[in-house]
Design a protein around this nucleic acid. Structure first.
Lengths: 350, 350
DNA sequence: CTGTTAGCGCGTTCAC
DNA sequence: GTGAACGCGCTAACAG
């Protein structure tokens, strides 16, 4: 049915081996025959059979990127950056670069494991796991085991935005430090009653950011109130909205609310407005990630910037082995406080 | 190195063929041997070799989903819905369902073609093309040709949100009708000076929505001003911001602005606010798509709802051949006007 | 119901 | 520089 290497070989009047050599490019071939082969490839519109090639060579050109939520720009930006490093050039049936594919786990441990198996089955060249990990001991062990088997079979495993595990290179995000600096910023402005809208309890990202927040409060002697003014939800807008109403019920004299990410912060802002509270006059609001929309929200959102694109791109290069591994296999991605208009000194009566 | 079918067969004391039959499941096998095989699979932690399997069976379990911008929730929602239909169950080394992978073209025709080639090389089971297509004649012909070759080699081609082509099943979005009803809504409210922020000129989505807008204006005898009050940009927030400033320069007595999508509309709102204009008191604003954030924006955004999740899920089922093709291979996805707080009768002095 | 026999299309030794 | 031959791991006929 489909045109094969043999067809090309026949048309170019050479052996299949020669065609293979021309296409893979890593072997000396006479310029004249090389041209003949390429012409035949074009004329026949030949496209390499990936599975056959992968079987023979024992490696495929697939790179999997796992994300927790494909509809969240946080992951979209990272995934897009990873893909941009693959430079998929596939001219003239020639072996192009890798095929980066993103898989949406929806934050479910089972689906994460399933995708890992699926990718292992495909003999993927590399796998990039992005975003916070679920902390259930069983699941962590299962992921670590999978990673080891993948690594053992030649698949590079790269972590981007989650804690290190064995047999994987990791780009860890400075969630804790960023969160701490953010809350310190609010404390410096004079806030003392600060609410916190956290993400799902079992995610590493959630825990790290919350830890940073608590550390800042504890250092200011405010450790007590932290728990009472912390509400958990999902990493989405409506969770921020609902959590804000809850926080206001617990303490209607709050002067600031910190959200675990920018998307939640948007929900927080909406809820505050609906309650007739002005930002930042009545309540200051802060987020995390510095997604594109944060800078021109109204008011512009104070947040912690994470260089998502750069991190994703680096993860991509690491996945391709085009960049040396960081010492110890772990590199920390720095975060940066972006103080903007949504935070100001408290003016509200206590 | 890796454990193979033969290893499992040896351990279970059956032939390789039997193991294969157990794993693919579509063949009668005695319950006792079946159990023995599955136990061996577990003990050996066997994972099928995808490439080998694809080679022998001449089909792979890969399904490609092409999107224009992976960081845009519009595509994230569709892609997530497609993947949710795949139900990736990969227990016990058993052949799970398909592996849906999303590829980010960034809206570039070259990358779109490259990904199509890459997927063809992998002998993908199906390919889903989402979102507006680029209208350059050469590119359209190239995509149509690729689609034909894919279809010819057994790959199902599904279009979701773009105009039909031969050899593909398509789920077309009612962009034109929705846009028309949206502008009619504004006209009914009494608006006469309506600005329009369009997307990139060469996209089908852009054209269809703009056509609908113009049709509504023309029907109201307002066809003349349409061109002067239309500005093109990208499908992002900053384009909406910049375009709004430009529209205000062209006519500072505008009473409404229609954006080609919700994301642009957010930028429009930001720009209007920065100009000291209130929404909808001074200027009404409308978007398109009804992304999750639109309902609780401030004010809630009037827009046109497209059932993205449903459409994506259906595209997924079509890709798997689990749903009968619509008559003629084309189904229209209806859009629905969502009139909310961002639009109101004009009050501003002309 | 199960084992045997052939390939699937390509990469990679070897010789020439 | 090029061709011939073998095998990657699996599925799909056939037998039995």
């Amino acid at each position: 049915m489909a045109v094969t290497l043999a067809d090309v070989a026949a048309r170019a009047r050479v052996s299949a081996a020669t065609v293979s050599r021309v296409l893979s490019g890593n072997y000396p071939v006479a310029e004249s025959t090389r041209a003949r082969v390429l012409r035949a490839v074009d004329e026949l519109e030949y496209v390499v059979n990936g599975p056959a090639s992968a079987l023979a060579a024992a490696t495929s050109d697939l790179v999997g990127v796992l994300v927790n939520d494909i509809a969240d720009p946080f992951f979209g930006i990272i995934a897009g950056a990873v893909q941009s490093e693959m430079g998929a050039v596939a001219e003239s049936g020639r072996h192009g670069e890798k095929l980066a594919v993103v898989c949406n786990t929806g934050g479910s441990p089972e689906r994460e494991l399933n995708y890992l198996t699926l990718l292992q089955r495909q003999r993927a060249a590399a796998v990039v796991l992005t975003g916070g990990a679920v902390e259930h001991p069983d699941h962590m062990a299962a992921v670590a085991a999978k990673a080891s088997r993948l690594a053992a079979s030649g698949t590079r495993v790269v972590l981007c935005g989650r804690p290190p595990i064995e047999d994987a290179v990791t780009l860890a995000f400075d969630n804790r430090g960023g969160a701490r600096r953010l809350t310190e910023h609010l404390l410096t402005l004079g806030h003392r009653r600060i609410g916190y809208v956290a993400g799902p309890a079992e995610r590493t990202t959630t825990r790290d950011r919350l830890d940073g927040h608590r550390a800042a409060l504890a250092a200011a002697g405010l450790g007590e109130a932290a728990d009472r003014l912390t509400v958990h939800g999902l990493y989405d807008r409506s969770s921020g909205y609902d959590a804000t109403l809850e926080l206001l019920r617990r303490d209607d004299a709050l002067t600031a609310i910190v959200a675990a990410n920018d998307t939640i912060a948007l929900g927080v802002c909406a809820a505050l407005r609906d309650q007739g509270l002005r930002i930042p006059d009545d309540v200051s609001v802060a987020g995390f990630d510095d997604l594109p929309f944060s800078a021109d929200a109204v008011p512009a959102l104070t947040t912690v910037r994470l260089p998502l694109h750069e991190a994703g791109a680096r993860a991509g290069r690491l996945a391709l082995g085009r960049e040396p591994q960081p010492p110890g296999g772990v590199a920390m991605v720095r975060s940066e406080l972006m103080a903007r208009a949504s935070t100001a000194p408290p003016r509200r009566a206590g």
